[in-house]
């Protein structure tokens, strides 16, 4: 039976893992390669590196991080953040990333998804979707309506696009997986947007990674069961050592969620 995946996300800035809230108050949280190796040994199923530097210098540093990680870490890892061209994708994959994730560039140039899938295979093209609940003109959310809009530029720019329509489109273009972040829930620690996660999971036949809002292990369980996600991504609960990967898996196993057994040499 296929297991549900637990994926720690590491934000990388200037070659270091950073912690912060909404890209402010960034604090150094260590060496990405060391942290990645630790998560591997703790039983993480996969890793995501998010390059939040967004400059050409940053890209060179990130490639270096990816190269070193590939030498030390033997679980799959995805790299996202600022990839705009086929050459950017090729460089990351050549450096050792197993998958790359596209967000803003996928919306602006959907062909990047199909070209990437054609050249490198669907399995390594992840499309990240930042979703926000539609609002009334006065900015309030209509809780009776489940409708979400795609945002780009790190959540700063609304596109007007419907999330479910875009999710189906990226699947058709050849994306192998969707990394779905709820902007409403991100940073709240109140749990994933279950309705969103479920709606996208049911709209496509490719795997969906739930992201945004995890505050405790019950939230992860809900995302993987009620939300029907194939994988759960979380950052702060792991970075701040509120829960270990092992505790997470033990909890999920107790709840009857199929997870990879934690094993260590």
């Amino acid at each position: 039976m296929l297991k549900k995946r637990i994926i720690p996300c590491l934000d990388v800035h200037g070659g270091r893992v950073v912690k912060g809230t909404n890209f402010v108050n960034l604090r150094d949280a260590g060496d990405p390669v060391e942290l990645a190796a630790t998560y591997d040994q703790e039983g993480a199923d996969e890793l995501v590196f998010l390059d939040i530097t967004a400059s050409s210098d940053g890209r060179a540093i990130m490639l270096d991080v990816v190269r070193h990680t590939a030498e030390e870490v033997f679980i799959p890892f995805t790299v996202g953040g600022g990839l705009r061209t086929i050459e950017d994708i090729r460089d990351m994959l050549k450096a050792g990333a197993d998958k790359i994730s596209l967000n803003t560039s996928a919306v602006q140039t959907p062909r990047l998804i199909s070209d990437g899938a054609w050249k490198f295979g669907s399995q390594c093209i992840v499309v990240a979707i930042d979703a926000r609940r539609r609002r009334h003109a006065d900015g309030t959310v209509d809780p009776t309506q489940d409708a979400w809009e795609v945002y780009i530029h790190g959540g700063r720019t609304a596109t007007g696009m419907d999330v479910l329509t875009w999710a189906r489109e990226v699947e058709k273009l050849g994306a192998g997986e969707i990394l779905l972040t709820s902007m409403d829930c991100d940073g709240t620690k109140d749990g994933y947007d279950i309705a969103l996660t479920r709606a996208v999971s049911e709209a496509v036949t490719i795997p969906v990674i739930a992201s945004g809002g995890v505050g405790n292990l019950e939230h992860i369980r809900a995302g993987l069961t009620e939300g029907k996600a194939d994988a759960a991504l979380a950052a702060s609960i792991f970075h701040y050592k509120e829960y270990t990967i092992r505790e997470t898996k033990e909890y999920l196993e107790k709840c009857g969620v199929p997870v990879r057994r934690w094993q260590k040499k």
Binding site: L2, K3, T205, P207
Partner: peptide
């Protein structure tokens, strides 16, 4: 089912083989 089959899955070992040394069922 979702395709690709992507992620961790358990093995059922059908026959012993030196290639599988140290790998247990499951």
């Amino acid at each position: 089912l979702k395709v690709p089959h992507m992620g961790w899955n358990a093995l059922t070992i059908r026959q012993a083989n030196p290639f599988m040394d140290g790998i247990s069922d499951g």
